[in-house]
Nucleic acid binder design. Structure first.
Lengths: 214, 214
DNA sequence: TACGTTAATGACTCACTGGTCATTAACGTA
DNA sequence: TACGTTAATGACCAGTGAGTCATTAACGTA
């Protein structure tokens, strides 16, 4: 009887890839691409390093898979959410921010923006993909809401593209913050309070005279 | 006569450290800590790797020096700028954001927030330093402006701590964006336009009834 | 000019990790 | 139960890069 027997192997071809990308996401977000060891990813996924190479050609291929799977589903859901919305433009904006928090902020995928910020310049192709398939689609979602509000006179007229980025920044910063400095500080700000404040300021900032003075 | 003579050495004990931290800052911001080679830093600073070790004990020590020198002087300048300001609270806010852009956004130090976002969790001690000596001091600057505006009735009453973070987020995001995704896209947004939009939305969001309805 | 001090160098070491592959064993099937 | 397929393993290899140190040469001084 061996003192410490190796745990019995399991053959789970179907489940491995997603378990590996899940483990990789966590570690890439925490440490960054270069500082993450494949060995650690494998261990976290409950396999050996060799197994990882059955499913991914290289460390970089694994990284690409993590980004490609990451936010695209959440975005699709957000798009259908927006399509089925019936309230005012501001309520839609509110729903989008709320949805962003529920679909991304509270999930493990909230780490992806931090990861892309850190690694964009090391992986321009991945950055390109992320820009086209996440950033632009996310912007379009907010842009539609803004445009609708301006056309109906609910919002003041402003440059939509610029306006979007200003509106999204606090929402993005919130999750980036929680995955970076906040992790070392135990000074957890309450996310809902923060988002409510953002919407409160926004309500006054967007609503108004409707004259569209530039 | 040697075909390719090594360039003559120069003895410049005083200048080396700052040249090394400058080179290190650029490369750490671009690639991250782990993916940056000390050899590359040395070459960019015009010295050999051995020389680097005359001035810094280790790669991590160099990193700490980069962060510690980085934003502290700019912050001191911003503090004196705020102390000498005489206009309305909103004008002070405007001046702070303008100053932030001039003193940080347009300099090489604008990369530091991106760097800290990427590396905080790998260097909790450095994160702690950064939080206490940069984040908190920066917040205090904005907090004073906000508090003044609320006390005088210029701004609506809101929770100052939360409000600050919402206000700072777009300003921070602007420079983070420029050091990450924007670098791969050539889709350069005009920073001044963006900041003007932020202030425009803010003016409406902060100013108002002064009744302080929560 | 000759000499001593020390800034600067770059070849070297060694630990580490991405990637490989021969071997092992889990599981379905006959 | 016996056997074949293939998922899984982990020892191994090779390239890389942080950190060292004996040697070199710049510069101030006598």
């Amino acid at each position: 009887m061996p003192v410490s027997a190796a745990p019995p192997r399991k053959r789970r071809k179907e489940a491995r890839p997603s378990e590996l990308t899940a483990a990789a996401l966590e570690l890439f977000v925490e440490k960054g691409f270069a500082a993450t060891r494949l060995e650690d990813i494998a261990v976290r996924a409950g396999v050996s390093k060799g197994t990882l190479y059955l499913y991914f050609d290289s460390k970089e291929a694994l990284f690409k898979a993590v980004i490609q799977e990451g936010l695209v589903p959440a975005l699709a859901e957000a798009e259908s959410l927006a399509a089925g919305h019936a309230g005012s433009a501001f309520e839609l904006l509110q729903a989008l921010i709320e949805g962003w928090w529920r679909l991304v902020g509270e999930t493990r995928y909230s780490g992806i923006p931090k990861l892309m910020i850190a690694e964009s310049r090391n992986f321009p192709e991945v950055a390109q993909f992320y820009y086209e398939n996440v950033v632009q689609r996310g912007r379009a979602l907010f842009a539609a809401a803004l445009q609708r509000g301006m056309d109906s006179g609910e919002f003041r007229r402003r440059d939509v593209a610029t306006c979007i980025d200003v509106i999204i920044a606090p929402v993005l910063m919130l999750i980036v913050w929680r995955h970076s400095l906040a992790h070392c500080l135990l000074v957890q700000q309450e996310p809902r309070t923060y988002l409510a404040m953002h919407l409160d300021l926004l309500r006054q900032g967007l609503l108004g005279d409707a004259t569209g003075s530039p």
